[in-house]
Nucleic acid binder design. Structure first.
Lengths: 136, 136
DNA sequence: TATGAACCCTGTAGTCGCTACAGGGTCAAG
DNA sequence: CTTGACCCTGTAGCGACTACAGGGTTCATA
């Protein structure tokens, strides 16, 4: 299987696949006589795992750990749970933070009554660090 | 005012201040005889604006536009409104996306019953691209 | 006067996860 | 025999910083 086919099969950019190889996230495949990468079904599986985890926002260090753990079937599931739980917590923190931003942005926008820059409540709110809109 | 004082006054890393100068977001200050940067009150105000806007997640291109607009007091407020509104929409999209991730992660974690890696539902869910947990 | 700490300077490289070239080689079809 | 689609390596770019290395300055203290 050539890199273009792996790309098609997994919906992954060719450059991204080569990048994953470079950082040793995806093992080096064999090569054809003309030096083309030659992938096996295991590569498809692993790359699907990686792309799904990336889609869920896991960073590459976490994915590396998850893949390592997956290669050790007798080991306890706790570490996997810890990584996924840690990531969920991070996502929840991020959501909470963005909800605060949303509130402040909505507040700012609600105060805008059009008119001239000189009277712009949005610029005023941005400049006024001592009294951010979310607190008022 | 030296860079360390500006840093204190605005809660901004010294390296970040120099970075803002390099990308011409913060105007070059005067220099003392010993070549130290010498900031004026206007710099404090501008940097406060920048930091507040960055805290709200505006990117530097947007902040540049907002600062430019602020320098033109007779101009209509519409462009400012458009930038802030666009950013609010982006924040809302991001929240929606993270809420989906949260759902899928919670689902994955809920299925974990401990035990061995070989039976790990989390790794199974991650590997199973055809049927992501959020859809089931 | 010497010394040491705390500050300041420039310039460059690293972070993360890709993405986008430049400059070439390979292969199948017409 | 040429065209075009694919493949290769290597390097540089993105955004928004952050972290040095390797030096200069200032000020208080001994």
């Amino acid at each position: 299987m050539k890199i273009g086919e792996l790309s098609q099969a997994t919906g992954t950019n060719v450059e991204t696949i080569r990048y994953y190889e470079r950082i040793a996230l995806l093992p080096k495949p064999g090569r054809t006589g003309s030096n083309y990468r030659d992938y096996a079904p295991g590569h498809v599986e692993r790359l699907n795992f990686i792309r799904h985890a990336r889609g869920l926002g896991f960073d590459i260090a976490d994915i590396r750990s998850l893949l390592d753990l997956g290669g050790d079937p007798e080991r306890d599931c706790g570490e996997v749970d810890r990584i996924a739980g840690g990531h969920l917590a991070a996502v929840e923190r991020k959501i909470a933070q963005l909800e605060l931003l949303r509130k402040e942005l909505r507040h700012m926008l609600a105060r805008c009554e059009g008119g001239q820059i000189a009277d712009c409540r949005i610029l005023e709110a941005l400049g006024d660090r001592a009294r951010p809109a979310a607190a008022g």
